[in-house]
Amino acid sequence: MTGITGAQADRPVPVRPFDEPWHAAAFAITVHLHDHGLFTWPDWADALGRALAGDAHAGCLDGSDDYYRAWLAALQEMLATGGVADAADIEQVKQAWTDAYLTTPHGQPVAIALR
C-alpha cells in the first residue's frame, strides 16, 4: 500500500484548500443550506458517510475529486429528500448549461435562460 501523505509538506497555511472550483462551490452550497436550516449537520454527515461508503471506488477514495463526487451525491440526496430538486430537475438544468457552453462563442459569457 502506498503512503497516505504522498510526502506532502505540512504547510502552516494551505494556499489552496480546494483542488477545483467545483469542490469549493459544492462545499459552499452545503454550508450555506445548512446555515439556513435546510438540514441538520448530523443528517448531512450521515448522507455523506453513506455516499462515501457506497461509492464505486469505495476503499480507494483519494480524498479529492472522488471525495467531492460523493459529496455531490450526498448533496443531491439532501435536496431530493427535502423536496427541493430531484434528479430529473438537476439533469435538465445541467443539460441547459451543457448546451449553453457548446453554443456560446469562446470568450462570450455563458448563461442560460431562467425558466
Binding site: 467545483w22 462551490a25 438537476i90
Partner: peptide, 23 residues
C-alpha cells in the same frame, strides 16, 4: 471549435444545483 470550453460533468452538475437553488 469556436465554443466555450465545456466544464467537467460534476462542475456542470454543481452549476445546475446553484442555478436551481438560486432560482
Amino acid at each position: 471549435n469556436p465554443h466555450s470550453l465545456l466544464p467537467s460533468e460534476p462542475a456542470l452538475r454543481v452549476k445546475a444545483l446553484e442555478t436551481i437553488l438560486t432560482e
